[in-house]
Amino acid sequence: MAVTLTDEARQYIALFDEETDVAATDCIVDDEYDRVVFVVPPGTMGKAIGPGGTHVQQLEDKIGQDIEIVEGADTPENFVANALAPAAVYNVTISENDTTVAYAEVDRDDVGVAIGTDGRNIDLARRLAKRHFDVDEIELP
């Protein structure tokens, strides 16, 4: 599925690549929560974060907003689990009827983390899952 980027997102991806030496595959500028979210290829999360989180800190200082990084995945199930991190996700099942719904089984103690303050985490996961795998909804049964 093709992801459409704004000019601002493209500029942030270029800066991200320069700082981390990781080519982000997506970027969402979330002005509502004053954050910039990058999606990185599978297996590059550690390199993107940097030792002790140095890359994230440097980017936050340059951009002036919080930085969040989501690791991409080859399947919608794994992508949804990654998008809900750091919540412990045990299993994700995709149901396709009139709409595509991902049912994510999250550790009881991490449901609040998966949802986030004012629903910010699950809303982001929904946006990303729609952009990358055309998943219409994420539910926590």
Rank of each mutant, 00 (worst) to 15 (best):
Q11P: 05
V70M: 06
F38G: 05
V37Q: 05
V56S: 14
G43D: 09
G46H: 13
I69P: 08
D118W: 06
D17W: 12
G64D: 10
I122N: 04
D123M: 09
V101A: 03
Y12L: 10
F38S: 06
E18D: 13
L128V: 07
I49S: 06
T54N: 14
Y12E: 02
I13W: 10
R120A: 12
I69A: 02
V56P: 07
V106C: 11
E32Y: 07
P141S: 07
N121Y: 06
I138F: 05
E139W: 02
D34F: 07
P41N: 04
E77Y: 07
G119Y: 02
F133R: 03
P41W: 01
F133K: 03
G119Q: 01
T100A: 08
V135S: 02
I67S: 10
D31L: 13
E68T: 08
G50K: 04
D134K: 15
D134Y: 08
V39E: 03
I67P: 03
I49N: 09
R10F: 10
Q58T: 15
G72E: 03
L59I: 13
D17A: 10
T6P: 00
A73T: 01
A88W: 08
E71D: 08
Q57V: 13
G50W: 02
I122K: 12
E60P: 01
P51V: 15
A73M: 03
V70N: 03
P42A: 08
P141E: 10
T75F: 11
D109Q: 11
P51M: 14
A104K: 01
F79K: 00
D7R: 11
K47F: 04
V40C: 07
N121S: 06
A23H: 15
V70L: 06
Q58A: 15
V80S: 00
T4S: 14
D7Y: 09
A73L: 07
V39Q: 03
E32N: 11
G52D: 08
D21H: 13
L15T: 08
V40A: 08
E8V: 08
T6Q: 08
V89S: 04
R127H: 09
E18H: 12
R35G: 11
G116F: 01
V101P: 00
F79L: 03
Q57K: 15
A104S: 06
H55K: 15
L140T: 03
P51I: 15
I115V: 10
A23Y: 15
A24N: 09
E60G: 11
T99V: 15
G46E: 12
